[in-house]
Simulated scan of single mutants.
Amino acid sequence: MKDHNLAIVGLGRVGTAFLQQLLDKQDERIGIRCVIEPDDTAGKLLARENGIEIVDVDELVEMGMSIDVVFDFTGDVAFRPMLEGKLASVHNSHTSVCNSNIARFIWALMSDDCLPEVHGSKYQALADMLLERGMEGDLPSVKASQES
């Protein structure tokens, strides 16, 4: 087993670029243990061609402490808390689930190239968050804030 065993979730254009960079690095201390991607993407094909196991969420959770870090490139804000909850339910406090911001930091250490944005930009991510909160009724109305 490698010193650091990783899983990548979401192999769209960003997750695929991250996977390719890790494969190009060929660091003997880092193992890409598995990936999760339900759709047929170029990244899923790349993983398959490189002998990386393709699993679902429950199979990843069953791997237990053999996974050190999970990189979440799904772009789904609900995914990380869901996975962390499943890991906690089996008492796995070892495996860390990292969002794309952490992956960007690691990418900057590995490459001079830019990692594509999951949301297009952080401003788009902010707009998406505000829209979602508004739809859930979690934002104060503009009219109420103008009356104060």
Rank of each mutant, 00 (worst) to 15 (best):
D24G: 10
D39F: 13
S148R: 14
A125M: 06
Q124N: 14
I30K: 01
D76P: 07
Q124V: 10
N5Q: 13
I54G: 03
D72I: 03
G64Y: 03
G85E: 14
A103F: 04
T41N: 02
H4A: 01
D24R: 12
S148Y: 00
L60T: 01
A127N: 00
H4I: 15
V69R: 10
M135N: 09
R13P: 03
N5K: 12
A47Y: 04
A42K: 13
C34R: 04
V61G: 02
P116A: 01
V9Q: 01
F18I: 10
V61W: 06
S111E: 08
E53M: 04
S111Y: 10
L11I: 01
R13M: 07
D40S: 11
V14G: 06
I30W: 07
D112C: 07
A88G: 02
T41M: 05
R33C: 04
D3R: 14
V9D: 05
H119R: 03
L6W: 10
G137N: 05
S141L: 06
I8Y: 08
P38I: 05
K44T: 09
E37W: 00
A103P: 11
E84S: 09
A108E: 12
K25F: 00
I54R: 00
I102E: 09
E117F: 13
I54C: 06
N101T: 10
L139C: 09
A17C: 04
